[in-house]
Design a protein around this nucleic acid. Structure first.
Lengths: 125, 125, 125, 125
DNA sequence: GTGGTCTAGACCACG
DNA sequence: GTGGTCTAGACCACC
C-alpha cells in the first residue's frame, strides 16, 4: 500500500504523507478507520519509528488523521480542509508549470494534447 | 534580469540556472553574447561567488553556455540539446502532475480549462 | 450524562474527573448519592475499567466522592475543599490567559466585552 | 530571552515556539532579523538540536519565521496569519474558561473584576 | 558555518 | 500495546 522510493530525493516522511493523503482522498482508507501503528509501519517499511511519527504528526496537523495517545491513529472523518489545501497547492503549481511551458515555446494545443494523453494513461482507481 | 527569491526553498544556484536558461531560450541573451563575470554577478546579487560558479558550471555542462579561460562565459550558439532536455523534463513533470490531478478528483475538462486560462495569463514575452 | 471526546487530547480519565466534578458542583449529583459502579460505567462508555478506576481515585483524593469497600462510590456530602481547589486553579489559569491577551495586543475593553458575551451564551443550568 | 521551565509539563519545543511567537508579536524580534542558529540555541539552552529544529519547523509552518538552508532562520516580514490564528485560538480557549467559571458558580461581576485586576498586573512590555 | 533528514535507543503517559 | 517527547550522533546539501 505504501511504497518508498529511496532514489527519490524527496524526504521519506513526505513520501509517506503524500501516499496516505491520496489513499484517504481515494477512499481506500475510510473515515475513522485505524491506521497501522507507528511501530508496526516502521518495522514493515524498515524505517525508523521517528520518521513515521513525523509523517503522522504532519498528517494530523493537516487534518487528514487524528491520533489518540494509547489507542492509535485514525482517519479523520472530515479531511475536507486538507483536501482543499492540496487542490489549491496543485493549481498554484500548475500555473507555474504552464508559465514554464510558454517559456519553453510549447504551444497551447500541444500542451492540451499532452494533458489529455497523460490523463487517459493515468492509473484508473 | 535575474531575481533571487530567498524565501523559495529551491537552492539559489538552481534558481540562477533556471533564470539564465529561460533568458537564453527566450532570446534575451543572444548567441555568443558575453555573460557578466562570476565576480560581478556575485557582488550584484550579493551572493557568494561559489554559488554563481556552481550555477555556471551546470549551465556549461548542459550546453547553454561555454567558458573561455581568462575571458569569461558566453552564450552557446547552439543550446539545442539543453533545451530538448528541459522539454523532456517538463513533460515528465507534467505527467506526474496530471496523475496527481486525477487523484485529487479534478476532471479533465476543468483541468484543460485551467491550463488554457493560465496560458493566457502567463507573461507575454 | 458523561460524554467522552476521543478527539480531545486531554486524557480520558481527566475528562471523566472534570465531568463528574461539575455534575457535583451543579448539584445534579446530590450528596451521598451512589455513583454507577466502575464496571458499569466502563461498559456503558466502552472504556477500560482501569481508566474509570483512575478517575474515581482522583475524585476521592480531591474530596468529591468517597468509596466504601464492597458497596460502591458515593458523592461526598461536603466537597467544599475540592471546589475551592478548583476555583483557585481557575484563577491561576485565568491570570495566565489575561497575560496572554495582553501579549496578543488585545485591549482590556475588548476582552471584557468578550467575557460578558461568552458568559451570556454559556449553557444555562 | 528564552527561558525553559523543565517543571512545566508542556513539551520543551512548544515552550520555545510560544516564546518566540510572543517575542515576534511584541516586536522584540524585528522583521527579517536573523534568529540564533539551531546549534547555537541548542548549546545555549543545553538542549538537543533536534528539539530546537522541531520548534523552528513549527514556527516556519505557522508563518512566523522562514528558514534558508545554509544561511539561517529569519523573522517573517508578515507573520499576520499566524497571529490571527493565535488570536482565534485564544478566544476559543476563553469561551471555554468562561463556561467553566459559570459552572464554578463564579458571578460575572467577580469574573470581570479579576480580569481587570490581572490585566493591570500583567507585565508591561 | 547553516538548516534538514534520518537512525538508534530511551523514557513517559495513556489504555 | 499505543502515541509523544527527547537525546545522541550521523550525514547531506547549501553557502
Amino acid at each position: 500500500m505504501i511504497i518508498i522510493d529511496y532514489q527519490d530525493r524527496t524526504p521519506i516522511y513526505e513520501q509517506i504523507v503524500d501516499r496516505v493523503q491520496t489513499l484517504i482522498i481515494k477512499g481506500v482508507l475510510k473515515a475513522n478507520e485505524q491506521l497501522p501503528s507507528v511501530r508496526k509501519l516502521a518495522t514493515d517499511l524498515s524505517i525508523n519509528p521517528n520518521t513515521i511519527q513525523k509523517a503522522f504528526a504532519l498528517l494530523e496537523q493537516q487534518g487528514f488523521i487524528y491520533s489518540v495517545k494509547g489507542r492509535g491513529s485514525f482517519v479523520s472523518p472530515n479531511p475536507g480542509s486538507g483536501i482543499e489545501q492540496k487542490r489549491e497547492d496543485f493549481f498554484l503549481h500548475l500555473e507555474e508549470m504552464v508559465s514554464n511551458a510558454k517559456d519553453l515555446r510549447i504551444e497551447l494545443p500541444d500542451l492540451q494534447k499532452k494533458v489529455q494523453e497523460f490523463y487517459g494513461e493515468a492509473q484508473r482507481d
